[in-house]
Simulated scan of single mutants.
Amino acid sequence: MGFSQALSGLNAAAMNLDVVGNNIANSQTVGFKGSSVQFADVYAGAQVGLGTRVAAVLQDFSDGTLETTGRNLDLAVAGTGFFRFMQGEQVVYSRNGQLIMTPEGYLENAQGARLTGFPAGVGTGGQPVPLQVPSGAMNATATTGVEASFNLDARADLIDRATVPFDPADGNSYSYANTGTAFDSLGVEHTMTMYFSKTADNTWEVRVAVDGNADAANVGELVFDSNGLLNEAASTFPTYGFTPGGGADALNFALAFDGTTQFGQDFNLDNLNQNGYTAGTLVGITFDDAGNVVGNYSNERSQVLGTIALADFRNPEGLQAAGDNVWVETATSGQPLLGLPGSGMFGSLESGVVETSNVDLTRALVDLIIAQRNYQANTQTIKVQDEVLQSAVNLR
Score class of each variant (00 low, 15 high):
70 G>M: 11
129 V>G: 07
131 L>Y: 05
83 F>S: 09
78 A>V: 00
77 V>P: 01
121 G>A: 12
108 E>G: 00
105 G>Q: 04
90 Q>F: 09
105 G>E: 03
100 I>Y: 15
113 A>D: 15
88 G>E: 10
102 T>S: 14
74 D>Q: 01
119 P>L: 10
82 F>I: 01
114 R>W: 00
90 Q>R: 15
117 G>R: 10
128 P>L: 05
88 G>S: 14
87 Q>E: 15
102 T>Q: 05
95 R>P: 03
100 I>S: 15
109 N>P: 05
96 N>S: 13
131 L>Q: 05
78 A>C: 03
95 R>M: 04
121 G>Q: 04
88 G>L: 14
92 V>G: 04
92 V>E: 01
119 P>T: 10
111 Q>I: 05
126 G>E: 02
112 G>L: 10
81 G>Q: 06
100 I>G: 14
114 R>I: 11
81 G>L: 06
131 L>D: 00
93 Y>H: 07
120 A>G: 07
108 E>P: 02
72 N>T: 15
82 F>M: 14
79 G>H: 08
85 F>T: 13
88 G>K: 15
92 V>T: 06
121 G>W: 06
112 G>I: 09
125 G>H: 10
85 F>D: 05
94 S>I: 10
80 T>I: 11
74 D>H: 03
130 P>C: 12
86 M>L: 13
124 T>H: 08
79 G>A: 12
69 T>R: 04
83 F>N: 01
117 G>P: 11
115 L>Q: 02
130 P>V: 07
79 G>S: 14
106 Y>V: 06
103 P>S: 10
99 L>K: 02
80 T>Q: 12
103 P>Y: 07
75 L>C: 01
94 S>G: 13
127 Q>R: 11
122 V>L: 08
72 N>R: 15
113 A>T: 12
101 M>K: 00
76 A>D: 06
88 G>N: 14
100 I>K: 15
81 G>M: 02
131 L>T: 05
90 Q>T: 14
117 G>K: 04
110 A>P: 02
105 G>V: 07
90 Q>I: 14
76 A>L: 01
87 Q>L: 14
91 V>D: 05
112 G>M: 10
71 R>M: 14
109 N>R: 11
115 L>E: 05
85 F>H: 08
129 V>N: 07
129 V>P: 00
90 Q>N: 15
76 A>R: 00
94 S>C: 14
73 L>S: 09
119 P>Y: 10
126 G>K: 06
86 M>E: 12
120 A>L: 09
120 A>T: 09
127 Q>Y: 01
95 R>I: 04
102 T>V: 07
111 Q>L: 02
102 T>G: 06
113 A>V: 15
93 Y>R: 08
121 G>N: 13
122 V>R: 01
82 F>W: 02
110 A>L: 10
107 L>C: 11
122 V>W: 07
114 R>H: 07
126 G>C: 10
81 G>R: 00
78 A>M: 08
109 N>H: 11
114 R>A: 03
82 F>G: 04
89 E>C: 13
111 Q>F: 03
105 G>L: 09
106 Y>T: 08
120 A>F: 07
121 G>D: 00
125 G>P: 09
76 A>E: 07
88 G>H: 10
100 I>C: 09
105 G>I: 03
78 A>W: 08
93 Y>V: 01
92 V>W: 00
77 V>A: 06
80 T>N: 15
